[in-house]
């Protein structure tokens, strides 16, 4: 495994992909919806449930509208990337596997101080929690390491190990860059060298303005209600499909609506139209959807559901 320093943001991503592929993970693609974190990808949220083994790694573009700073803050962005690994059941050498990934992206294990510092993870919107650590490299948090105990209100059996890398921050550290917009996106010696700013400065500005001041809150509120209603409607539909005669539980389409509601809530939050008391109520509404989706997913074959033996 090469330990030479990578030269660009994308090289770090590519090395992570190669590394986790070599460790047996299915390298998935980002989920095609707006999410707040890699955990929301159904490959994590839903696949952490049920009895079937799973091993996946992927990049997930993530959006946190309130974190937008018009591209001016050195490390705050409303759109950023997470790298996510989920292995179920968590292997006994997950810590070693993880440290190997740091080595792979150019962190010299002989010169740095890597620490596992207690950090309990909880997602009120997903009804999920786990125990683990934030991983420090020379005092900087470079990853989140969690053993999932519950998702959507269901105990995880077996337990998944989840790794989340905040890619921009990690890459800035490895590449020695102080402002995210200055970070080389592709090879700095390429004929057309692009920085992170070349790719994202424009969009950060545009979205910050839209998120904070322009997004139409009435429309968003309506979208929230629509997503909530559609999610419930999907889950209320009979499992037995009259057309195919098959039992088809639609956990994933319903979960898409849950994701949608969650993101709309984040947008409304950024627009400042949700009061402190309402906040909890909205989070509770999203959690209720997530729980119902989890209930539905454990009824699928993908989760290991088997039809009860015939009488």
């Amino acid at each position: 495994m090469s330990t030479d320093t990578p030269r660009s943001f994308q090289e770090i991503i590519l090395r992570l992909q190669t590394y986790w592929a070599s460790k047996g993970c299915a390298v998935l693609q980002p989920y095609d919806m707006e999410v707040g974190a890699g955990t929301f990808h159904p490959a994590t949220t839903l696949r952490a449930l049920g009895s079937k083994p799973w091993a996946a790694a992927y990049v997930q573009p993530s959006r946190r509208p309130t974190d937008g700073r018009y591209g001016e803050n050195p490390n705050r962005l409303q759109h950023y990337y997470q790298y996510q690994v989920l292995i179920k059941p968590s292997p006994p050498d997950l810590q070693e596997l993880y440290l190997g990934s740091l080595q792979a992206i150019g962190i010299d294990m002989d010169l740095h101080d890597i620490r596992f510092v207690e950090d309990d993870w909880e997602s009120p919107t997903l009804g999920a929690w786990g125990l683990g650590w934030e991983v420090w490299c020379d005092g900087m948090e470079v990853s989140q390491f969690t053993y999932f105990q519950q998702v959507g209100g269901h105990d995880c059996h077996p337990v998944s190990g989840e790794l989340t890398y905040g890619l921009e921050r990690l890459a800035m550290y490895i590449l020695g860059v102080d402002h995210v917009m200055d970070m080389p996106f592709n090879d700095p010696d390429a004929p057309i060298a692009l920085s992170y700013g070349d790719v994202f400065k424009q969009t950060e500005e545009e979205y910050a303005r839209w998120n904070f001041d322009v997004a139409d809150t009435d429309t968003l509120l309506q979208h929230f209600k629509d997503a909530e209603a559609e999610c419930a409607r999907i889950l209320d539909t009979d499992y037995d499909d009259p057309k195919t005669g098959k039992r088809i539980v639609m956990a994933h389409p319903a979960y898409d609506q849950c994701i949608k509601a969650s993101h709309i809530f984040n947008l409304l939050d950024a627009r400042g139209v949700i009061s402190v008391t309402e906040r909890q109520a909205y989070i509770g509404r999203v959690r209720a959807l997530a729980k119902r989706c989890a209930d539905a997913f454990v009824q699928t074959k993908a989760a290991g559901w088997v039809p009860e033996a015939a009488e």
Binding site: P89, S90, P91, P92, D120, G130, L131, G132, Y147, Q149, C156, H157, P158, V159, G161
Partner: peptide, 16 residues
């Protein structure tokens, strides 16, 4: 004060 399960086992410990 807080314990967890890991892998496929049922034993609880603070971390694996």
């Amino acid at each position: 004060p807080k314990s967890m399960r890991w892998g496929s086992g049922s034993l609880r410990w603070v971390r694996p």
